[in-house]
């Protein structure tokens, strides 16, 4: 596509006869692009298009599609569990994501301090994010075990009686947020690279003007890393809307999918349950499309709002 654009722009919009070599290059370029393009069309565009059609249909495994118009969408908006799932997911997005950003930024500042053993600390903070999701979830289920787990044992040392992290619907989502915080190494690394891009000249100038550490943080560091914050925010929000694996393992361990009391029934978990356990693929497709538009909407909104708060130095 790019190749063709460049050819067209060279001709200033007027049709020109391509030389044999240009034609050859064009087809050669296309041939190189083909594996990706075919894969994209076959495994991304076609399934997306198909799922859009299914979302307006009653889908059976071995029967022709039955077009039912907006029924799936109408039913969805009357489905209590849809709102439960949406609410649970919103909780993670609204509380989990900002908390992750804040803590990652704080950790990145600490890891940016020039102290002995700096690289060791960096490795330690990054390590959890390379532990496979399922393994780390299982590990946390042990840590959060209300009676014998590390967390409540530690809290007990300070005379605090820890909650039932796994089976109390009030604490299930905070437990999952804790789990997410433990694995925030990737976000920290991105922040760390952003911090290292903050021009020393600005900081030194501010220092000379007598700005305190706090003032330098608020007026220089935070604005300078704002594009990184935006990136982390958007990827974090998108990731959280699709939150699945940890919740699936957690729910199944606490009882069944969504346990305790549907407090871990997140959007993607409910989507999976609807499609693969209740065999309502059309309904699940409608859910997938609604999620797609919610994510798209949030991303656009974040981009719009961010214009005012993001500073691009380049």
């Amino acid at each position: 596509m790019q190749k063709m654009d460049s050819v067209v722009s060279q001709s200033h919009g007027k049709p020109v006869r391509w030389s044999k070599k240009t034609r050859h290059n064009f087809w050669l370029g296309m041939a190189f692009l083909a594996p990706w393009s075919i894969g994209f069309l076959l495994f991304t565009m076609y399934p997306m298009g198909a799922s859009l059609i299914y979302s307006f249909s009653e889908y059976h495994l071995r029967a022709p599609l039955k077009w039912i118009g907006l029924t799936n969408y109408i039913n969805l908006f009357q489905d209590k569990l849809f709102y439960t799932a949406l609410g649970n997911t919103a909780y993670m997005v609204v509380i989990g994501v900002p908390l992750t950003l804040l803590l990652s930024f704080f950790c990145a500042i600490l890891l940016n301090l020039k102290v002995p053993g700096q690289s060791i600390y960096r490795v330690i903070y990054y390590l959890p994010s390379i532990v496979p999701t399922i393994a780390s979830t299982m590990l946390w289920l042990w840590i959060l075990n209300p009676s014998s787990g590390l967390m409540n044992t530690l809290l007990g040392l300070f005379g605090i009686q820890g909650p039932n992290w796994l089976k109390d619907p009030l604490w299930a989502k905070p437990s999952l947020i804790l789990l997410a915080l433990w694995g925030m190494g990737g976000t920290i690394i991105i922040y760390l690279s952003g911090l290292q891009d903050v021009p020393l000249s600005l900081i030194e100038a501010a220092q000379l003007d007598g700005a305190s550490w706090w003032q330098r943080l608020i007026h220089i560091t935070i604005p300078m890393v704002s594009p990184i914050t935006l990136f982390n925010l958007i990827t974090g929000v998108i990731g959280m809307f699709q939150y699945f694996a940890q919740a699936y393992v957690f729910g199944n361990t606490a009882g069944s999918i969504g346990s305790p009391l549907n407090s871990t029934l997140f959007y993607s978990v409910y989507l999976y349950q609807t499609g693969f356990l209740f065999l309502k693929m059309g309904y699940a497709s409608a859910m997938a499309w609604i999620l797609f538009f919610i994510i798209l909407g949030c991303t656009i909104l974040l981009f719009r709002v961010s214009n005012r708060y993001t500073y691009y130095s380049g």
Binding site: S51, Y59, L61, F241, F244
Partner: peptide, 15 residues
């Protein structure tokens, strides 16, 4: 792509 994968799985079943 994770979202897309969910769609793909559903669509592939039908495909």
């Amino acid at each position: 792509s994770t979202l897309v994968t969910v769609m793909i799985v559903i669509a592939l079943l039908a495909a």
